[in-house]
Design a protein around this nucleic acid. Structure first.
Lengths: 269, 269
DNA sequence: ACACACTGTATCGCTCAGCGATACAATCGT
DNA sequence: ACGATTGTATCGCTGAGCGATACAGTGTGT
């Protein structure tokens, strides 16, 4: 399901205005499309596969892959035939994470939060129709998903996503929902726009958003939005617990005050 | 100190053979150099700064920045003037992490390891003269450094780095040391090539490498190499503890058997 | 055994993408 | 008011790179 969401990103074809924009460098766009081709992969990709995914012909793919390989962003798979992303990619990750003021200030706060609550704590960043994990503090009892920075979940059905929406006005929320792919992540995901708007309104009044089993069955999550200098939401703190340990009320009573305080500590950067 | 190491990467100017290689696309290289310009930054960068760092003129920088912005890899800093990396970068991170077989298989093993040892456990990947963190499992007692995927430390003075070197032959080790920037990370970092070779030889015999206060004062670290299908080292497990809690011997006796077993479980992928 | 469909790689001439110069409005600090 | 920044926009010339084409190696199917 993660893949389905991400593959949509990839369909970002060159638009008309981009074609007529003298400042828009097509070869750069093509190169980034080659790197993005791997969003849909679950193994090494051949030149033809890359070409198809990136929407360019094999020749172009060849030259771009060659260049990216020379630069250390791609490598040939030793055993399998095909190509894979290479380590150098992570350099840019660090640039992003260490220059992002929210992430920068969030880490100690999140650790403190996890120490108090002893459940999984995530920091996610708002990216329109999706919400991207930037940091995860594991709880002792582990879910099988690990620290995968870059993972994303839909805004509309995640606790943090709806907490973020609750800081926008109804028009903006509707706009995002319109552009969202509303396929449910689990059978419990709320997909009806009207119902989502209700939940968002509820979050506005309470200051937090709850999502029960909307991302993972058996999991309850509480999200609180983080805002920037201009009071615009730019991310959220998620706390996730198991429904076998918590009633909804106990979870909310325990988590909300702490998470809310943590969010306030991170906000306005 | 992190920055000094990384800024070296950036000096990767276009080589002569690249210039004469018909398959090498210069515009793509320039674009990646623009993204890499942020390796040396600690805040938003202006066009002129980017141009200087990337070794191109302002016009080129302008057009590339414009394109990367259009594609969602850069954004303008709201308050400060200048540009910053944007979220989309993290998409590629996930591609790399989730397609890398070592990382893929390591996570459960590392969690198990941390559960047993209750100290910080890191997974790092070998990249020539440096070693890049791909995952970190925090211990309860926190060091101030947080989960920053992409961080790197020099191969020559880290426990994992030397564990990796111990799986190469002496010529290869010398070659890496020759190309390394041997500036010490802490006053305790061993920088004399002969002494490093001794330590590497010691690691060969013992199956693990120890580094005391070579990266962080007060910290002892034990590293065990991870190998690929061809028995070539491709990464390492690091376990780090505080010298106030452990004697060298106690640390080694407790950590080595478990870390070694974990490394074996991850190896050969 | 052959044929065929794949890999990845290499070459080359035509053409249009994009280089680099130049200009400009806006916002600094002095 | 000045010069030095910032980011943005335009434009003609030219060489970067597009896309066609070819080739060696490796399976896969018949």
């Amino acid at each position: 399901m993660q893949r389905t969401i991400r593959s949509l990103l990839n369909q970002r074809v060159m638009t008309e205005n981009q074609k007529n924009d003298p400042l828009f460098l097509q070869s750069v766009a093509r190169a980034m499309q080659v790197l993005s081709a791997f969003h849909t992969a679950d193994g090494a990709m051949s030149l033809s596969e890359i070409a198809k995914q990136a929407g360019i012909d094999r020749s172009a793919a060849q030259r771009i892959v060659h260049t990216l390989r020379e630069l250390g962003y791609l490598k040939r798979d030793n055993e399998d035939s095909g190509f894979l992303p290479e380590l150098r990619i992570l350099d840019h990750t660090l640039d992003y994470l260490s220059l992002n003021p929210v992430v920068r200030n969030a880490t100690p706060v999140l650790l403190e939060l996890r120490r108090n609550i002893r459940e999984r704590v995530d920091l996610s960043l708002f990216d329109d129709t999706r919400v991207v994990y930037a940091a995860r503090m594991q709880s002792k009892r582990e879910t099988f998903f690990a620290t995968l920075v870059g993972h994303s979940v839909p805004t509309f059905c995640s606790s943090g996503g709806r907490a973020i929406l609750s800081r926008l006005n109804d028009d903006e929320v509707r706009d995002i929902l319109d552009r969202s792919d509303l396929t449910p992540v689990t059978p419990r995901s709320i997909t009806d726009p009207a119902a989502i708007l209700d939940k968002v309104q509820e979050a506005r009044e309470q200051g937090y958003a709850l999502a029960k089993e909307e991302i993972l069955i058996g999991e309850i999550a509480l999200g609180v939005a983080i805002t920037d200098k201009h009071d615009r939401p730019c991310g959220a703190i998620h706390v996730a617990g198991s429904l076998s340990d918590w009633t909804t009320e106990a979870f909310r009573d325990r988590v909300f005050p702490l998470a809310s305080e943590a969010a306030r500590a991170i906000s306005r950067f």
